[in-house]
Computed example of a mutant assay.
Amino acid sequence: MGAYQLLYSVTVEHMYFVNHVCKSLQFVPAQATVHLFNKSGLLLKVNENRLSVFFEDDKLDILQMHAEDDLVFTFKVFSKDSNFSLYTLPDIQPQHTILYFDNQQLTKDTAGRFLLHDGPFVSEADYVDLNVDLISGDLESRDYHVRPCFIIKIVIQKDAQLLSLNQQNARFRQFHIAFASNKTFWKYYLMGDLSGRKLYIADMNNEMEFEELGNAMLPGNRTARMLQSTNAIQMHEKPLQRFQLKEYLDSRDKVLIKRLPNASIDQINGEMVKGKMKNISEIYIH
């Protein structure tokens, strides 16, 4: 038995997560890909946000023989996190489309890595119709009911550099997909005694401002004063924002809350902002 060497890997990054490691992914090979693994002796390894395919170096000739008609690997990628679509850009497109990535036209980022999409992050341009020949044969009926988040296809032709024992420059074997995180407007509801006082929100980093939206009537006939960020804020698993609640006083403004709670992925609604539907993170302060 020979030693296993890397054929290729695909790493999925996400700006929402700490260290950009995209969590909760499931890489499911299509049936034709499962058959390819079985007949070629390749080894699949999945490590959180990365799938890697290995070959035995003393069986490279067998792999090259199988590549006479091209080696095609298709993976359907699901997320076990039900909030994946909330914190991910681009926004979900119509139901008959899906995000699709392959290695036919690679893009290099500023670090020299090979991306499976055009531009530094995944965009709306990466959506394709579910019925295109590229993927239609790889989808099962259940995939139309529980749709994958995206599809990855790696095609290796018989004369490809990947089909060699050359491991000195591993970068040409390492592919990447990078997702940007979505944005939300942060809306604070100041309730109870706070609703009638002269309060404002200060950004300790001096980057964000908040505007008055008036009062809202909440269930139970409770009144709340609304303050909303003037710009949308990038979503992060652990938000970096540092906002304080202050009160206007004649001599010196008083800090009431040294650090306000940050927005949560669990409290997001869609509202109209300047004529367009936007994501709103609601935060209630008693």
Rank of each mutant, 00 (worst) to 15 (best):
A67I: 07
H35R: 15
R113N: 08
H286K: 04
W186V: 00
I62A: 12
D69A: 09
Y100C: 01
H66A: 13
S52Y: 00
L213D: 04
L115S: 08
Q105G: 01
E68N: 15
Q157W: 07
N206M: 02
K274T: 10
H236K: 15
V18E: 09
F54G: 05
I257W: 00
Y144C: 01
S251C: 05
G270I: 12
Q174H: 05
Q234W: 11
T223Y: 07
D126G: 01
W186Q: 02
I98V: 06
N83V: 01
L134F: 07
F101T: 10
L71T: 05
H145C: 01
T230W: 01
Y127P: 09
T184Q: 07
D91T: 10
L6C: 09
Q104Y: 04
Q105F: 08
N215K: 15
G192W: 02
F150H: 09
S136N: 06
N206G: 03
L116Y: 09
T107S: 05
S79L: 04
N221P: 00
Q95A: 08
I268E: 15
D193V: 06
T74W: 01
L43W: 04
A202Q: 14
L6I: 06
Q241W: 06
D266K: 14
M226C: 13
D143L: 10
I62W: 04
R242H: 12
L36V: 10
S136V: 06
P261G: 01
L199H: 02
R142P: 01
F114Q: 09
Q26E: 15
C149T: 11
F101M: 04
L190M: 11
Q234E: 03
F210A: 07
Q64V: 14
R259N: 08
T74V: 13
G275Q: 07
G192M: 08
L218Q: 13
Y284W: 08
G214H: 11
Q228V: 00
Q157L: 07
M226I: 14
